[in-house]
């Protein structure tokens, strides 16, 4: 039923609040749609940057709220290469890279965060 389905869904609203220095989450109301896009992207890039720096990966404490794990992959010396931490961090870096790429298109003068490096082409898993 609808009630059962809703009960099993992931909780979408977070309980904590994000605050990014210098960018208010109350958006000024006089921005054009283009400026709004840039404003939101800037906020998202800064938020991911902050999380990468503080290693705040947002992995749910409740395992039922997590996605299924893939088969483990190990290096030649037996170290696991695709732990949830590694996968989550990689996903954040990829997302940030995409956002920065879009941002450069919207604003050619955009300067990415100082810790950002454009990714090298990765060896396939």
């Amino acid at each position: 039923t609808k009630e059962e389905r809703r009960a099993l869904r992931k909780k979408k609203w977070s309980t904590d609040t994000v605050s990014i220095t210098g960018i208010s989450t109350n958006m000024p109301s006089d921005l054009t749609p283009e400026q709004q896009k840039i404003y939101i992207k800037q906020l998202e890039i800064e938020e991911i940057t902050k999380r990468l720096k503080s290693n705040d990966l947002g992995i749910p404490a409740d395992p039922t709220q997590r996605s299924p794990s893939p088969e483990p992959v190990y290096s030649s010396d037996g170290k696991r290469l695709n732990t949830r931490e590694i996968r989550t961090k990689r996903k954040l870096e990829d997302t940030r890279h995409q956002l920065i790429t879009q941002m450069k298109e919207l604003n050619p003068h955009y300067m990415p965060p100082s810790d950002y490096r454009a990714p090298n082409v990765r060896v396939q898993e």
């Binding site: 979408k12 609203w13 977070s14 989450t25 404003y39 939101i40």
Partner: peptide, 10 residues
């Protein structure tokens, strides 16, 4: 500033 489906809400 809360998140909805992992996106920061403005």
């Amino acid at each position: 500033g809360r998140k909805f489906a992992n996106r920061v809400v403005l």
